[in-house]
Design a protein around this nucleic acid. Structure first.
Lengths: 215, 215, 215, 215
DNA sequence: AATGAATGAGCGTTCATTCAT
DNA sequence: TATGAATGAACGCTCATTCAT
């Protein structure tokens, strides 16, 4: 049942001549299909056809379709959490770490747009058991980012009239929704959009000198 | 085929003794179920059971399950667009109109959290025909907001180093995603969260005096 | 229930200003749709849409969809029977009357290919009550033709080693099946095909001089 | 997708204890029901009930109800084509081969009246894809027969004032329509009817010595 | 003479999952 | 470490027909 337990080790990988074990081909095919058509609209039949395995093989490696989706997301999330932790644990001033963290989210989002799209579209379809497991990990990531914001507030470089929670959700939401409107080939590259988002985010964080507008 | 054409008029409504025509009961039941369980996870059977009508009646009023979802969203969007237009067309200074528009989005979002949740979760499941129709209307709303931001940029009250498009998407995304994290009964009321979001948004808009952080 | 009883009389027809009463438009639309798509694949909804009447109007004039199909066919059959009776009752020699009857079937088939196609495709779908009624009339037509063949056999101009029944069915089947293979615009016109069919039919009727082939 | 590809091989058949695999039971049940009630009037539910399998099993073997109908017909047609080819390729005189071919059609029709009835009643209900596939095979059969007729015309034993195409269609139509009027237990056995049809057909083919009737 | 909202049974099809091999 | 036939429940949707007005 545990994802980690079913990961093929490097040793196991070497046993098979064909690069791309059945399990890997399943994950690759599912990621691609889930991203393109959505989790709900992709049948197990289509996944096994694309991965060139049989249904039995899929159910040998994954207990259910949900577990497959969960696996994809958890691998992604684990990587992203690791990167954030390294930034947060650095010893640069907090404003620099905040800026770096924001940039990193933008970059990681750009690199894994497909997988993240899957998740954004499909997370709510999961049954409670799988949903809970990923929610906990997602929460851990959120808290890591939120702590950084809070540290900025304590250092006086981030405004305190907006809660760290709201700040974190806002930035992460804005990033997580880019898939709904960003189109490659448009007037702005993703990198440019990313930098503007960071600028907007960071710009919005400074303590207001006074009421921003007459109210 | 046209949604508007099948709306019961006030006159037609009066003909029926029962308040709550079949059509209205269907819309109410569908909205509630779609919001709670998602569009894909709600069967037509469940909707008609909740609305206490037959399947035939549902398909008399709506050509398909998709059309029902589309109807719900379009009615909502039309109302929101109308409200925004009134604010944008006012003769207050642009910074006030921007602030008012942001507040209005927050308020409308709060009032219709359920319906908007439906849309956020399910829009991507629609077939092309229905998706296109609503995308056009959604786009009109977005443009209205974006024009206001652009007007602010021309007046010098909104920073110009971030494009109006990115600003608009960011704010609307942040608002449109609150359903994923906001839980009534938590430490902050939705009104408080809303005001913080507006502050963050408006605060992020001011032209930067200099580089916000050493980079 | 009786078709004759619901026929609009000439008098009734004159009462309406619009040429094309509701009933007539229904018959016309149904004939066209049944011929093109088949009876089973044509919904009552489509018929009323094409005829520009409401469902209620259709069910005012026709007790059911079956009755509508039956009506169309009976009108056609009555006309064809009448024509055959006139030929059969003539006082020309039997071989001439046979030839004329065959030609007439060909011509009538050509004129009403659409309606006859309807019948060929859909007769077997009717419920017993309607099927029985038309079968009786169809039988009367068949008998009329068969009697002519039998008369030819008694006069010695038609072979007697094949029963009149088989002869009649064969010719009528061949004609009734032309819709499956004849395509307007092909190498042969329907008139040419018709003449060849008559020649083949008539040629096959002569008493064989001896065994046609060594057996 | 391909019918042939899903045929259980002899080897596969032996693996299962029960004679009559699921696939075979489905085909048998469908043939019987389609023939008796027509394709359109037979539900998938009824087929699986008669075959004592589940719907899932049916859709495992056949992609759709249409494909099931198509399969039944194609197997039949393939067999009939094979038989005709053997007759046509023989080295008897052409008149004998024509006679034998006609007899063979009659016999095969008698043996498979049920299946052929299915096809006659239901072919026009198929979607384009399936219709096209069988039309091509049907066409091949027709051409085979037609070539034989044409060979007879070139040898001078078949009249040339009627095109081979018309001759072929006429005979095959007459045979293919026997299901509409032949009732077992009537005055004539099917064998007798068959011989009369062959006699009529063959008799109609001889070159006319002169005008058969005064015209 | 006609309306049109509503019925309700049934349709063909899909699908995640199981299990004997 | 697979295979693939089979399951069985649910799915979105259609349709001829009815009836109060």
């Amino acid at each position: 049942m545990s994802v980690a337990a079913t990961e093929p080790t490097a040793g196991a990988g070497r046993r098979r001549a064909a690069r791309g074990s059945a399990r890997q081909r399943i994950v690759a095919a599912a990621t691609e299909l889930f991203a393109r058509r959505g989790y709900g609209a992709t049948s197990v039949q289509e996944i096994v056809a694309a991965a060139e395995v049989t249904k039995g093989a899929l159910y040998h490696w994954f207990g259910s379709k949900s577990e497959l989706l969960t696996s994809i997301y958890r691998e992604l999330l684990a990587e992203q959490t690791q990167r954030l932790r390294e930034i947060a644990d650095g010893d640069a001033p907090v404003e620099e770490r905040l800026h770096a963290a924001a940039l990193d989210v933008v970059e990681h989002t750009a690199e894994h747009l497909a997988e993240l799209t899957v998740w954004a579209k499909s997370a709510h379809l999961l049954d409670d058991e799988h949903a809970e497991a990923t929610r906990r990990e997602r929460r851990r990531y959120h808290d890591l980012f939120c702590d950084l914001v809070r540290e900025g507030q304590q250092s006086g470089v981030v405004r305190t009239d907006v809660s760290a929670t709201v700040i974190t959700h806002t930035f992460l939401s804005a990033l997580g929704n880019t898939h709904t409107w960003f189109r490659p080939g448009g007037p702005l590259s993703f990198a440019e959009v990313g930098h503007q988002l960071v600028a907007l985010f960071v710009g919005g964080l400074r303590a207001p000198a006074g009421p921003p507008y007459r109210t």
